[in-house]
């Protein structure tokens, strides 16, 4: 099944205006925003959609406290859409919506949708590192650090992480019914999952958790590279948003990460430079300690040389 990845995530929120400002400050482009709802797109058109939590058009979340109301995945062709509908109709309702997409529910209670992907093709070089002996270099006189005031935008909706009460059952649904592959696994926690039409290390990660945790841990967009992503994160912090973990680099998936609190009842991440794998990849398994989650974690030092206001040997506290 050629599921190419996430197309959009739909949230019900209690403060549309505040959530809209948050997403614009994150870097997304607002489309059709009102006091009741809005769509916020990455460069390729993948998006977060928000609506008032009491909007009757919103499907229910898996549990009352979960603000994620629907996860929409993109598929490459009508054949895949038909195959998914036929597969899921074996044991559950599948609705065909007026926009041509289909809607159903996964085995953990998350409402899922599938549509022909509307991702816009993006041709935009990623971050390039200059290295002695390298083959690809940045153009001469171009700068590695994004200059102040430069526009940084998320490129594509990357992945969503669910807390699920029965992780084996949740994984079986995505693997056996929708053709996802496990690329790596945290022992006793859950699998990183890749759909058949994507090479990304994961578009879904499942965490087994008690029923009262049922919901979302985080979601994230891919940025053009670590320098862009971390610059965007610092700008986000300067705007008053609350960082939770990062910036750093994960081990499984290798993606650079920075997590923030959000008005969506879950974390939001900025990520960059995730590994890609094909079917020849052999899944690894690791315990889910912090040491196995962060290859390194960066810390900003505001002053690092002797000067006004700091000891003459520098501030190395």
């Amino acid at each position: 099944m050629k599921i190419v990845g996430l197309e959009s995530l739909i949230f019900g929120v209690d403060d549309v205006r505040g959530a809209a400002r948050f997403l614009v400050d994150y870097g997304l482009t607002p489309v059709d925003v009102s006091d009741r709802s809005g769509r916020f797109e990455a460069i390729d058109g993948t998006a977060v959609v928000i609506a008032r939590q009491d909007d009757p058009a919103l499907p229910p979340g898996p549990v009352p406290g979960c603000r994620l109301r629907k996860t929409v995945m993109g598929v490459a062709d009508e054949a895949t859409l038909g195959a998914i509908a036929a597969e899921l109709r074996r044991d559950r309702e599948v609705r065909r919506l007026p926009d041509g997409s289909i809607e159903s529910i996964d085995d953990s209670g998350f409402v899922i949708g599938f549509q022909l992907t509307a991702r816009r093709p993006v041709v935009l070089p990623g971050e390039i590192s200059n290295a002695p002996g390298g083959v690809v270099f940045r153009p001469i006189n171009s700068l590695g650090v994004p200059p102040p005031g430069s526009v940084i935008r998320p490129r594509s909706l990357s992945h969503v992480v669910y807390f699920v009460p029965d992780v084996a059952k949740a994984e079986a649904f995505y693997v056996n019914r929708l053709g996802f592959r496990c690329t790596d696994r945290f022992t006793g926690t859950g699998p990183f999952l890749q759909p058949g039409g994507s090479l990304d290390h994961h578009t879904h990660f499942l965490i087994g958790a008690p029923p009262h945790m049922h919901g979302v841990e985080h979601f994230t967009f891919h940025f053009g590279g670590p320098s862009e992503m971390i610059t965007n994160g610092y700008r986000f912090v300067e705007k008053g948003y609350q960082a939770f973990w990062g910036p750093g680099r994960h081990i499984l998936g290798s993606n650079w990460f920075w997590y923030f609190n959000s008005p969506f009842g879950c974390h939001i991440e900025m990520d960059a430079d995730m590994d890609q794998h094909d079917a020849s990849w052999q899944p690894r398994e690791a315990t889910a300690s912090a040491d196995n989650s962060q290859a390194f974690l960066l810390k900003m030092r505001r002053k690092w040389y002797p000067g006004p206001g700091i000891p003459e040997n520098g501030d190395y506290a």
Partner: peptide, 27 residues
Amino acid sequence: GAPMAWRRDAYLNAERTRIVCHAHGAE
């Protein structure tokens, strides 16, 4: 020790009836 606001000083829900942790939605 997880910090709770989603934006500086924003610790409450929109209705201003609950303190919310904007990491995982605890109220």
